[in-house]
Every structure is written in C-alpha cells, then in structure tokens.
C-alpha cells in the first residue's frame, strides 16, 4: 500500500508544475514554449499514471498494453503529418 503522504506529495508536485507551465508560457520562449508546455504536461501525466493510477506497481502486462496504445497513436500522428508537412 502506498503511503498517503506520497499521494499528497505527488499532488504538490502537480500543482507546482502547473505553476511552472503558466510561468513558462509568460516568458515568450517562441517555438520552445510549445515544447515546454508539452514536456511539462507529459511529466504531469506520467506522475498521475504511475502514482494515482498505480501503474508503477501493476503487473508488466499493463505497461506493455499502455505502450501499444501509445505507439498506435504515435504512428497515426506521424503518418498523418507525412501528408500535412509535405502538402
């Protein structure tokens, strides 16, 4: 069982990262700002996934399945952009 304190710490981290992403957006980093936003959002969702959704202590099959779903989405995005980028 995960200690309740861990959940609170994760929550604090999530709130802090939200603050960070709002601040970063105010800095006018140009094209980097999108990258920063996506990066921070990814960190936040992996925190939710591994702690709140308890993925880190699940059996391996759950992680493999999630990987399959994410790879599928990535392939779909990539191939669509093969059209969009070169049109």
């Amino acid at each position: 069982m995960t200690a309740l304190g861990t959940y609170v710490k994760v929550w604090l981290a999530l709130i802090a990262l939200t603050g960070l992403t709002v601040t970063a957006a105010g800095l006018h980093l140009g094209s980097l700002s999108v990258l920063a936003a996506i990066l921070i959002a990814s960190v936040k969702s992996s925190l939710v996934l591994s702690f709140f959704m308890n993925l880190r202590s699940e059996e391996r099959v759950f992680k493999v399945m999630l990987g399959v779903a994410m790879a599928t989405m990535a392939v779909i995005m990539l191939l669509t952009f093969v059209d969009v980028w070169y049109r």
């Binding site: 700002s33 996506i38 959002a41 969702s45 959704m53």
Partner: peptide, 18 residues
C-alpha cells in the same frame, strides 16, 4: 484520472499559447 490527464494536455494547448 484519465479525465484529469486529458485536461492536463488541454489546458496548455488552449490557454497558454498566447
């Protein structure tokens, strides 16, 4: 939590791209 994760991405993509 999944609903939360979706919002984690929606928020910067709509509100923070000014």
């Amino acid at each position: 939590h999944l609903v939360d994760i979706v919002w984690i991405f929606l928020f910067p993509l709509f509100y923070l791209i000014t």
